[in-house]
Simulated scan of single mutants.
Amino acid sequence: MNIRRGTKNDMQAVLDLIQELAIFEKEPDAVVVTVADLERDGFGDNPLFYTFVAEVDQEIVGMALYYYRYSTWKGRTIHLEDLIVKEKMRGSGLGLALYTKVIEQGKADNVRRIEWNVLDWNTPAIDFYKKSGAKILADWDVVQMDEQGINDFLTNL
């Protein structure tokens, strides 16, 4: 197993993992991001995200994608957008290795918080996070406005 920083050349494998996650989360048609989007947004002058990839036998079988945010209470934070391990490799320790790498990055960057979302029905992930010492915030709801909502809001101003 090798955990390393993702490169521009890894973005097709990263997209494949994203699509696998969408299927797992019962949203197979929700992914609209492309390899070109990932290459542009992750590897320009001001990258919008960073990745770690997990390789086994020179095949990328997992990834963690994160980016920096700013909290008015805590300052600089990391948001872990996705941690994905191919189904055939789950239970092998790759998820823990990727998770550890993101937490080590947060420590090296002196962030005061690392945060992410987990679906309420994904009990294996919830149990893993709780066991690691993470807090599940039951009194907060995730709020999003999708593209249609953005358009509708601006149209109705």
Rank of each mutant, 00 (worst) to 15 (best):
K74S: 14
A134N: 10
M89W: 12
K131Q: 13
T72N: 09
H79Q: 09
K107T: 06
K74N: 09
K88P: 05
R40I: 12
D127A: 13
V111K: 06
A54K: 12
L80C: 09
G106E: 08
E27I: 06
Q12D: 04
G44T: 02
D82S: 06
F52L: 12
P124V: 00
I126T: 04
A13F: 13
E87H: 11
L80T: 03
R112T: 06
K131N: 15
R40H: 15
M89R: 06
A125L: 06
D120F: 06
L94E: 14
V14P: 11
N122P: 02
G62P: 12
A138S: 15
H79F: 00
V31G: 12
R113H: 07
D127N: 15
K86D: 15
D29I: 08
D45R: 02
K86Y: 13
I23D: 03
Y67L: 07
E27V: 03
V35M: 07
D29V: 06
V14D: 09
A22M: 08
E27F: 01
G95F: 01
D45E: 15
A30W: 11
T72I: 04
V53F: 05
K135Q: 05
A134T: 11
I78M: 08
E55Q: 11
G133C: 09
T123D: 12
I84T: 07
D120W: 10
I60F: 05
I103Q: 15
M89K: 04
E87L: 11
K135H: 13
V35A: 06
K107D: 08
P47R: 07
V102M: 08
Y70W: 11
A64W: 10
L83G: 05
K88A: 15
G75H: 10
Y99D: 03
K135S: 06
G42T: 12
T123H: 00
D57F: 08
M63L: 06
M11A: 10
I126V: 11
K101N: 02
N110H: 15
L96H: 15
S71K: 04
R76E: 08
P124H: 02
K131T: 10
Q19S: 09
Y99G: 07
D57P: 10
G106F: 03
H79M: 01
K135T: 13
N110E: 14
P47I: 08
N122T: 11
A13M: 11
L119C: 07
E55D: 13
L38W: 05
A97I: 01
R40L: 14
K88R: 15
L119V: 01
P124L: 05
S132W: 05
L83K: 01
